[in-house]
Design a protein around this nucleic acid. Structure first.
Lengths: 170, 170
DNA sequence: TGCGCAACGTTATAATGTTGCGTTCGTTGA
DNA sequence: TCAACGAACGCAACATTATAACGTTGCGCA
């Protein structure tokens, strides 16, 4: 059964994080895959959904655990890693290298490398784009003769609410 | 025996990579540690030296192997990891998160997070600084209310000589 | 002499990621 | 109809990266 052909709806609001339900995210992913001639199978859909539901960068083995509750049979690590690889190849998921964890992409229709902020306190992450940073990276790359293929920009810090909570706790 | 008090000599030439021998690098590290009240012990010195000699991001277990040849007794992983942690705390070494590997810092006297370019072909890395990128990251962080504590910027790509070699090989 | 501390040693194990091969299942084409 | 094929997944074993927990050494110092 084919997905209903949902048009990609890029969210131009820079503050759109968390404003769409997981189902909606997964549905968009499905139509994107369709358009690209790739298939978002049940397992892939489930894992993407788990990532959206999690709300923070999630490790591969955490997904293995979570799938035990969601599926009839347990799913082994290689399957999860293969699935993550697929989802990353479709820009539906990014890996947070500094955490060995995976997050769903807010704007999978734009196949860009993004900028991630990760709170060292609560573990949540925020995805941003900044073309100016991308441009500067490209400039620097050109100066030293590199042709970039992938950009990893991850900023660890403390988010607003955790700072507030920390200050209140004192 | 104390090290001779070598003054940190920041290399203002942006192209200074690879222009100082490992001994010179290690000597500078020693005087920096002295100045900071930290001690660059024999083991720490050896590991830093190995990293400078390696010429590319090097894994912790590679260091374990390399130390087998350099030292009388083999050194176990926890020791290497502790040493790397110390070296990172002194800004003498950075971790390349996207590779799980470690590189010595070109300018340990400037305790900045840098920008790394890693060649996916030959595995070498180049360290750069760009205050403009740092500023943009801070700006973005401020917008979403983050207080950054660490910046990871790693760019994977193909370096000039590998591109030349690749083109010549065809 | 004995205390305290930093560095290092040692054993075991946790956490993360991969290889290789087999099975299932749907499609395709003679 | 059915062999051939390929994509997706199952699975056992293994490789790699990292840490926990605890013991030992050596040095400065009261």
């Amino acid at each position: 059964m084919a997905l209903s052909p949902i048009q990609p709806r890029p969210c131009t609001d820079p503050d759109c994080r968390g404003q769409h339900a997981p189902d909606e995210r997964v549905a968009l992913a499905g139509s994107l895959c369709n358009a690209r001639g790739a298939q978002l199978t049940k397992l892939r859909r489930q894992i993407l959904e788990l990532l959206w539901e999690s709300g923070r960068p999630t490790g591969a083995y955490e997904l293995v655990e979570a799938l035990k509750l969601k599926t009839s049979r347990p799913v082994a690590p290689p399957t999860v890693y293969r699935t993550l690889e697929f989802l990353m190849s479709q820009s539906l998921v990014s890996k947070i290298e500094s955490r060995n964890a995976y997050v769903p992409c807010v704007h999978p229709e734009r196949q860009n490398d993004c900028l991630f902020f990760i709170c060292s306190d609560c573990g949540t992450s925020v995805e941003l784009e900044d073309p100016r940073i991308e441009r500067l990276i490209s400039e620097n790359a050109a100066i030293i003769g590199y042709r970039p293929t992938r950009r990893v920009v991850e900023v660890e810090g403390v988010c607003r609410s955790c700072r507030a909570a920390g200050a209140a706790g004192k």
